[in-house]
Design a protein around this nucleic acid. Sequence first.
DNA 1: CCGTATCCTTCTTGATACTG
DNA 2: CAGTATCAAGAAGGATACGG
Lengths: 116, 116
Amino acid sequence: MNIDPKLCQVDSALDIIVGKWKPIILLHLMHNGRMRFSELKRSIPEITQKMLTKHLRELESEDIVKRVVYPQVPPKVEYSITEYGRSLEEILVAMHEWGSRHTSRKKQKLSKEMSV
Amino acid sequence: MNIDPKLCQVDSALDIIVGKWKPIILLHLMHNGRMRFSELKRSIPEITQKMLTKHLRELESEDIVKRVVYPQVPPKVEYSITEYGRSLEEILVAMHEWGSRHTSRKKQKLSKEMSV
DNA sequence: CCGTATCCTTCTTGATACTG
DNA sequence: CAGTATCAAGAAGGATACGG
């Protein structure tokens, strides 16, 4: 580890991806390409419209997500990952993989304790 | 991106490293090896004892940090990264680097706007 | 269809004082 | 030295209703 802790920039990255539904929103968009608002909403049933809007706006303001409004009635809005946003993919994948291993590790520990 | 968003485990990883002072605590321990409580406190002047204790306890409960108490008066307690905790290093470095690029990117955008 | 606005609850953090 | 305990403030998230 040769990062000077005083210059820690981990938080700048965390600021982007932390939020109750942000990782899953990003994974959906990375997985599916362009998605309409309602499509995202259906894909994440427990999220409220308010939180979906809020998180998408935050991601948009950081240039991670692109929002395209089609001037129609009824409205149509499509979201997608920007090219810049793609640079987060590696990190998300790494975190998902670490998280998967961590979860199964915890389950193993738990089952060991239960068998004692 | 071939992660099924329904099986997203990014949050399991985020749970570990999210917390106002957790990344910097981890970087200090990864950088310096074993550190005493007071040493950590001095290295992160703005943190309160309460938050330092809380974060360390959480990291310890996830087996990321090891806590060793020396039965002395006055007390001496040393913290270090576990071998398992080392598996987080890659991700933290990746996030720090992404965060650094992101920060300078934002600065560039800002100075462009200022010059208009 | 794609949002806003309002109110409310819960979680996180901080300030401060105290202790073996 | 290395913590706990208590109280308070702020931020994040949720429920619900309404609007172009």
